[in-house]
């Protein structure tokens, strides 16, 4: 039986006065892969970045919950985002929540592989170090090995952990970033188009990896490629012009979309 990890309610983001995403509500299941699809600028990345409060760092971005204004017949943003995103039932936008601690639990992998200009070992060990997850050097070594193994990279790099992370190939770098993210001990891993900068073989390896990882982590992935969403995800949500159009089990959504816009998008008529 699947449980709900994130429960999102009427989430809205404005960039200064420009609307980034409006009135999105959805549930994201624990230990499943949820894919977010849609055309460029549809708000799917914005949504992803709300789940670990990365948008807090953009001064002009304002995350809030919206309400329906009967007079204007429109959704209007409220003053803050209290209650807009619940994680395991806890409000991650509550004033008492430290966004830094939240991001330890909700890790992130980015579009372009971005390893630190440090050794492979230090890349993976960074999270455990700042969060004090390892008491001794042995424990740290163990975490690094486990994370690299989970990311399917251990056998490839175990003899050159001291080499810079930037010396790896693109696909390896991205797996290093995944290893780095899971070494920090998260419950959720957010992936923002993780394969868009990779070749098909590297993409295949990472997709396989995601299948493994969902045993331990909740994964939310933004992807450009509908076939990728179809291959890897359990559930898929389709965004259009900043709004959530449809969300369903992946097979259901692709084979039998309820909405015409969804139908148009997955059949390649626009987007």
């Amino acid at each position: 039986m699947t449980s709900v990890k994130f429960s999102v309610n009427q989430l809205t983001v404005y960039y200064a006065i420009k609307m980034g995403m409006q009135n999105v509500s959805m549930d994201i299941n624990d230990r499943q892969i949820t894919a977010l699809i849609g055309a460029s600028g549809c708000g799917k990345s914005t949504f992803l970045r709300c789940l670990n409060r990365m948008n807090d760092l953009i001064h002009v971005a304002k995350v809030s919950r919206c309400t329906w204004d009967e007079a204007n017949k429109a959704f209007v943003p409220t003053a803050d985002a209290t209650g807009a995103v619940l994680m395991d039932g806890d409000d991650i936008y509550a004033p008492t929540v430290d966004a830094v601690e939240l991001r330890q639990k909700v890790g992130m992998v980015f579009q372009k592989p971005n390893p630190f200009p440090k050794s492979i070992y230090d890349n993976v060990a960074y999270g455990p170090r700042i969060h004090g997850l390892a008491g001794t050097q042995d424990e740290l070594d163990q975490i690094v090995e486990e994370s690299l193994t989970k990311a399917g990279l251990w056998t490839e790099v175990n003899d050159r952990l001291k080499q810079p992370g930037t010396s790896l190939s693109g696909g390896q770098q991205q797996r290093l970033c995944i290893a780095r993210a899971i070494a920090a001990g998260p419950e959720v891993v957010l992936m923002d188009e993780p394969c868009s900068a990779l070749d098909p073989i590297a993409t295949g390896i990472i997709e396989e990896l995601m299948g493994e990882l969902k045993k331990d982590y909740t994964i939310v992935i933004v992807t450009h490629s509908m076939s990728q969403a179809r291959r890897v995800s359990d559930r898929t949500s389709f965004f259009h012009l900043g709004e959530l159009v449809e969300m369903n089990d992946t097979e259901q959504l692709f084979d039998n979309p309820e909405n015409d816009q969804t139908k148009g998008f997955i059949s390649g008529r626009f987007g």
């Binding site: 670990n52 939240l102 330890q104 992130m108 980015f110 971005n114 999270g127 700042i130 969060h131």
Partner: peptide
């Protein structure tokens, strides 16, 4: 590059740690 900052923030480093580390 801003990607470096994002990487650190995404791992749960605070802005100050991101800058210093």
């Amino acid at each position: 590059p801003p990607t470096l900052r994002e990487a650190a923030i995404g791992l749960g480093a605070s802005p100050m740690q991101t800058v210093l580390h």
